[in-house]
Structure formats: C-alpha cells, structure tokens
Design a protein around this nucleic acid. Structure first.
Lengths: 256, 256
DNA sequence: TCATCTTTGTGCACGCGTTCACAAAGGCAT
DNA sequence: ATGCCTTTGTGAACGCGTGCACAAAGATGA
C-alpha cells in the first residue's frame, strides 16, 4: 500500500537530514540578499538571525555539507551560495509544468520566484478546451490531451498540480506515468503515489485551521477565569450512550 | 530577540502535540467526505488510509482528544467531525483579511475552501489606489490606509499576507499593531514578529527547491556507477585557500 | 449468560531533531 | 613569534514524534 506517502522517502542516502534540507532554501535566500549587497562574509549568528533560526542549528546544518566556514571569521557568502545551490540541485535547469490554470494556476505561472532559481515553466496545461492557446504569463495554455507528450518532449520531472481536488489524483497518475517523479500539490486532497515519487503539498485550508486552533487557545487562555465555557465540561457525560442514538443532538456544524 | 519565531510557540498548554494539530484538518477532511456519503462509522484503519497516515498514529492522535471511539466498532463519523471541529475552533466564525490583491491574492480570495470551514473573507486590502473599489471575488478591494480600521471594526485576528516580499514585514507590523495575532504569510520573507503572534508560511519557491534536492538525489543514485561527477570530488582540495582569493573561479550560479 | 471476535487505546522503545556548551582553529595585534 | 580574541564545528543530552505490539473493552451471536 503506497497510500499517501509523503516526504521522508529516503533521507539516509547522502546523510543530509530532511529538516536541514528544508532549511537550506531559507539560508540561500538570506545569503543571496547579502551577496547582492556585496557583503563578503557572515557569521553564523548574523546569518541565523536573517534566516530566523538558531545559530547552533545553522552551524550544524552547514556541518552536514562540509566545513565551509573559517573560525574567527565566519562564512564566505559567495562560496556558500554556490555550495548550497549545488547541494540543492539548483545549478541545473528544472523544467516544470503547471496543471490546472485557474486562478491559482495563473498566479503560480506569473510568480517571479519561479524563473529566478533554476526553475523554468515549460508548459501550462488545462482541461478546459476554451483555455487552449490562450496565453497566461506569456505562455500559451495547452490541453490536457498533450500532457504526456509535453512531459516527455521537455524531460519534465517536476509537476505542479493546481486543479480542483476531484481531478488531482488522476492528473498525478498521468504525470507519473509520463515520467514525473516529484509533485507539488496545491489541491486539497491526499495523493496516492507509488514509491519513489515525492509529493509535497501546500494547503491553504489546513494552514488556516492550524492558525485557528492556536487562535482559539490564545482566546481561551486569556479568558481563563471567566464564565465562558472554554475547555467545556466533559460533555460526553454518560458512557457511550448519547452518541450512538439518533444523534440529533449533535450540532451539525460542518457546512461542507 | 523575537527574530522570525515560527510556530511551536506553546504546545504544552492543553497537551495536544503540534504534530497532531497539523493532522487534525486532514482527518476532518476525510471525515467530512464520509459524512457526505452518510457513512455512520469508520475504523481507524479505514480513516487512516483515507487521510494517508498510519492507523496507530491516528489512534494516538485521537487519544489526545479523548476516547471517542468504540472498541470493536470504530469511530462515529458525525460525532468525530463535531469534536475535531470544536477542537480546531471551527465552530466559530473567523473573519480574515487578505492583504495584497495581486495574482495570488485574487486567487486566494476566489478560493472556495475559505468560506466552507468557518473562515470568512472580511476584506481585501491593497496598496494600489487604482485597485480601490474594484471588486474581486465579489468583494470590493480597500486601500491600505483603511487597514487598521478594517481590522478593528471586524474583530479580525487572522491575516493573510500576499504582498511582494518587500512589503511583507511592514504589513505584518501594521496588522499586529491593529490586533491581528495570527498570520499566514505567502511572501517569500522571514517575518519578525513579537511573542504571542503565530506565523505560518507558505513558500512555493522553498517547496520546489526541496523537490529539486530529492530529484537530483534520485538522478544521482541511478547514475551511480557512470562517469557523471555526482557527489563530485572534494573540490575544495586545499585548505581554505582558493575561496578567500578573488573568487573569480567560483561560478556565479545564482541569477537573483 | 458466556464465549468469541473485532477494534480501540496506550506502554514502550527507538530514532530524529534541537539545543547547549565547549574545545579546537584560525585571524590579528603587538 | 606569541598570546588574545572571535567564531566555528561538534559531542552529548534531551525531548518530541513515530510505530510496534498487546491488553482491555465492548459488540455480537449462540
């Protein structure tokens, strides 16, 4: 069963922990900013502050890449930019396709951060025939029928899914069958993919719900001693009685 | 120093681990789908498969909420939907504002997943005077000058930042000063916020770079015994010599 | 009522990630 | 050349998250 296996597919290969990999882009961004200001070197303390992490963590992260710093001085900005770029595979060009050119897909196509770091939008794909040929962000949208051909012709290995939830699984299967092995999924669904395929998901709704949880907790804490039923009484007072019944008493909270 | 402190602000308060909180929306989504199909109960195994997680993990997650299952039977779908909704704070209405109505902001405003789960777009805010009054997703865009008033009048505590990177920090400060305590940041910057404010970030560029790393590793593994210089020779052969020089030999890889 | 069968809830062990704290390393001034 | 001062690199401890494996609980049927 390869049900919804997310990242953590194989960290042990070259020794760099997954958590570290996830922070490298952060460091790279901070370093690039320093590079543009022609700053020659940074200390772990300064760079950590810029990246919003602990300096010890940063040093340990870098230690996985090798000993690239100079004691008493810090890190050479240009050199580190190069090393991290190489480690992340950003010294080569990554053609990506975006599937689903709705509001979100169009926004992604227009996103500048794409082209800047080695990623190139090779094609935009949509199931709506009316979209076909219409240019978005300067790139003509192609129909889903062309998907396999596009992937193969361009050697695409990274796909971005920005379709409605209902189409995401099927799209992912077609992408994978055509040769894609990494997927960035914006659709609110759990994708089921075979082993060896990496999936990362970006889910607005989930992020908001997590924020809501903390927000509620904050509100509950400051109104601690008030009459509000924060942390309400057990509620399921009896055994397992009332909830097996006609459950008409359970507030039907969720709209959809 | 409150530099870029991300989540993990206070997990210990009510005992629910952060990792569990992050999965609750996933369970909720799967449960809602079951509810719509009028499925009365699910086993941890079934639900775990639908949510793409391990069943033991799911049971442990639920155990933090209380004992809501029935041994030998499973979990009551409706009841669980209610409990998780309540735990996440979704039984109340959360007004949110979106700042920065470019391509992405507009896409977010149009995103249906917003309204469905207790979140309501209270206002759209943009710095461009030309945008003011123009309706996006049926909601008229308001100018940044109104930001503070909007936050206070609507009791907004959650803000979404979809501005360019350069404006994000300042926008976050204004949001926070006006009363916002949770921020979802789409701008590619590290936000510096005071203690007590939660920030979650969604960063397309970072996700792609992480995928690129794994993609590169895959490519390197399968071309293991070939002549390609994957895992290239140490490269910094000498001591710290060449990288302190005029560094003209370091390929200037990063464009911007 | 009692036996059987299913599924939960969780004790336990393990591994990853984070942080502390410090010795080693190197630059720099005298 | 030598000693001081800064900053890295990392050993070690700790805590969180995960997954196994099983006992307890309850439903179901005879």
């Amino acid at each position: 069963m390869a049900t919804g296996r997310n990242h953590r597919p194989a960290t042990r290969s070259r020794g760099i922990p997954e958590a570290t990999v996830a922070r490298l882009p952060l460091y790279l961004r901070a370093l690039t900013a320093l590079s543009e200001r022609s700053v020659p070197t940074v200390s772990s303390e300064e760079l950590a502050a810029a990246a919003g992490v602990n300096s010890a963590k940063l040093r340990k992260d870098f230690s996985y890449l090798g000993s690239y710093g100079t004691r008493g001085v810090g890190y050479d900005v240009e050199y580190l930019v190069y090393q991290i770029s190489r480690e992340l595979g950003l010294t080569q060009d990554w053609p990506v396709v975006i599937v689903g050119i709705g509001n979100l897909g169009a926004a992604l196509a227009n996103y500048g951060g794409f082209a800047s770091r080695g990623f190139r939008v090779a094609a935009l794909i949509d199931a709506d025939p009316a979209m076909a040929g219409k240019p978005v962000a300067g790139i003509p949208v192609q129909h889903t029928d062309e998907l396999e051909k596009i992937i193969k012709d361009n050697g695409v290995s990274i796909g971005v899914i920005a379709t409605p939830a209902g189409a995401a699984q099927q799209v992912s299967e077609r992408l994978i069958a055509a040769g894609v092995t990494s997927i960035l999924n914006f659709a609110p669904t759990v994708l089921s993919v075979p082993e060896g395929v990496d999936v990362r998901k970006v889910d607005l709704s989930i992020e908001l719900q997590i924020l809501a949880f903390h927000e509620q907790r904050k509100a509950g804490e400051e109104a601690a001693a008030s009459g509000a039923d924060v942390t309400p009484p057990p509620l399921r007072g009896g055994p397992a009685a009332n909830r097996k019944g006609p459950d008409g008493d359970v507030p039907a909270v969720m709209p959809a």
